[in-house]
């Protein structure tokens, strides 16, 4: 349950980027399947943390990515949201993970009239 501290880090990053406290309509973030983050826990924590930090009650829009993998048997590149399925080309689970750890604050949308 480290989502509370991550939500706090998110508001710090938003505060630093905007340089001031303004009411927000929407916060857009990206979470990868290997980031170790529970999207629903993060949403729960962020709602409260954002309100207390003076950003109002923005909607948290989460872009859940898939991991990118490359099969070490047949070189097929494929995507997955978990790791139980093997390569769609040959079925092998011998593979290398190319991405999936991302966790970024992408953008925020200010509430109308808040600037």
């Amino acid at each position: 349950m480290h989502e509370l501290s991550l939500a706090t880090d998110m508001t710090r990053i938003i505060g630093n980027a905007l340089g001031r406290k303004v009411l927000l309509d929407r916060v857009n973030i990206t979470i990868g399947p290997l980031s170790g983050i529970s999207p629903e826990s993060l949403r729960f924590c962020f709602t409260e943390v954002a309100r207390m930090a003076g950003f109002g009650e923005p909607e948290l829009v989460i872009n859940l990515t898939r991991a990118k993998l490359i099969c070490l048997e047949c070189n097929t590149e494929y995507e997955a949201k978990d790791f139980y399925q093997g390569c769609p080309g040959c079925g092998s689970i011998s593979r290398r993970i190319l991405s999936g750890r991302e966790f970024t604050v992408d953008s925020v949308e200010l509430e109308e009239g808040s600037d």
């Binding site: 980027a17 991302e102 970024t104 604050v105 953008s107």
Partner: peptide, 10 residues
């Protein structure tokens, strides 16, 4: 009204 941030939370 959209402000780009693109920053890793970590």
């Amino acid at each position: 009204r959209k402000v780009d941030i693109t920053t890793s939370v970590m």
